[in-house]
């Protein structure tokens, strides 16, 4: 549905050229949700703006719904853009218009008759759960409600494709969840293909089918979400996955932590489960085999694309010899073990 072929984008500043994107190719199949993840300045914003030609690529081809956008005249491009929805980090609602009028905006561009606008806008505001806010101005809405209005506005013209430019980055975690659920719902119900960019692995994990990692204007890794989560190849992909699973040692444990084994001190282990880890009930196996008791201090386990992964912080009770055997056992199950210290 969306195909980028060898996209390069250079910005020219007086004497020097800055390459924002180089040789980017990606394909988003119809009905899928594709995420591009990268740090700020990696070129992801430029990438998504190239899809509807808000930024014109220096070279390469942009094909949306079988149409090469680079070949179109400005007039044809404006028409093609009506079928490519876009939502933004800062919502970009018109402050001079009410919720109803904002959603009606794209229909007005097409000179839709008033009665039809009325019907369609009401329908859309129902869909995004804002049917009581017709006559409110954006200034009186919360961030989540503003993004819902923006989604309704962009759906008004029946797009086949939806581009999400950091759509949840300005929202709190609970609101992020609800907006992501809405996007997923739209994707399923209306069969809209979604391309989103984000810097949060959580977003990718929650709703994406496929993901690409972008760094310094290049896609360094791409594939199915389960594949990337289970076999991340690049350091950056690993870092993003780790950030979705960050785990802090509680403060009072940190105070008592020493680096060498000592009398009355027990090892503190960090276990990392990845896609390669054997899916066994390892904690109870260790308890049975090596007479080891494990006290789980904190854990973050998750499930994405059919793969279980996560991190766990445990305090180990047992003899030193048994503890070492337990560590070897975890390693044999492809679980990454790190001895943080002794508490």
């Amino acid at each position: 549905m969306i195909e980028l072929r060898n996209i390069t984008k250079k910005f020219f500043q007086k004497t020097r050229a800055i390459t924002a994107l180089s040789g980017v190719s990606l394909t988003v199949p119809e009905g899928k949700i594709f995420g591009v993840i990268g740090s700020s300045g990696a070129g992801k914003s430029t990438l998504i703006r190239c899809v509807n030609l808000l930024e014109k690529p220096t070279s390469g081809e942009v094909i949306v719904d079988g149409q090469n956008l680079m070949d179109l005249s400005p007039k044809q491009l404006a028409k093609a853009r009506r079928h490519i929805g876009m939502i933004f980090q800062h919502f970009n609602l018109l402050s001079s218009r009410t919720v109803f009028e904002n959603v009606a905006f794209s229909l007005e561009l097409d000179h839709t008759p008033k009665a039809e606008i009325e019907k369609r806008v009401t329908e859309l505001l129902d869909l995004v759960g804002l049917n009581e806010k017709h006559h409110d101005y954006p200034v009186n809405l919360s961030g989540g409600q503003k993004q819902r209005v923006a989604i309704a506005r962009t759906l008004a013209s029946n797009p086949k494709v939806l581009l999400c430019d950091e759509a949840t980055s300005a929202l709190d975690p609970a609101t992020t969840k609800s907006i992501l659920a809405l996007l997923k719902d739209i994707n399923k119900r209306l069969n809209i293909t979604i391309l989103l960019i984000t810097h949060e692995m959580e977003v990718v994990k929650d709703i994406c089918d496929e993901v690409a990692v972008i760094s310094e204007g290049k896609l360094i890794e791409q594939g199915a979400v389960s594949e990337i989560f289970s076999h991340p190849k690049t350091e950056l992909a690993k870092a993003f996955i780790a950030s979705a699973l960050s785990l802090d040692i509680p403060a009072d444990y940190k105070e008592r932590l020493v680096s060498a084994p000592a009398e009355n001190k027990r090892p503190l282990l960090k276990l990392e489960f990845t896609g390669q880890s054997v899916d066994d009930p390892v904690l109870s196996e260790v308890a049975r085999l090596f007479q080891i008791d494990s006290n789980v201090i904190s854990a973050r386990m998750d499930y994405a694309g059919g793969i279980k992964f996560g991190v766990m912080l445990i305090e180990v009770f047992g003899t030193q010899e048994n503890s070492l055997q337990a560590i070897e056992f975890y390693k044999s199950k492809n679980i990454k073990v790190e001895v943080i210290g002794y508490v």
Binding site: K75, A78, R81, R82, M86, N92, L109, R153, T154
Partner: peptide, 25 residues
């Protein structure tokens, strides 16, 4: 600037951007 960008993304012509976005805002 984001408002103009949003309007362009929705396929507004320059004239529509002026009288539906810039002047009212």
């Amino acid at each position: 600037g984001g408002l103009v960008e949003a309007a362009r993304a929705m396929g507004a012509t320059p004239f529509q951007i002026v009288y539906k976005v810039l002047l009212p805002e």
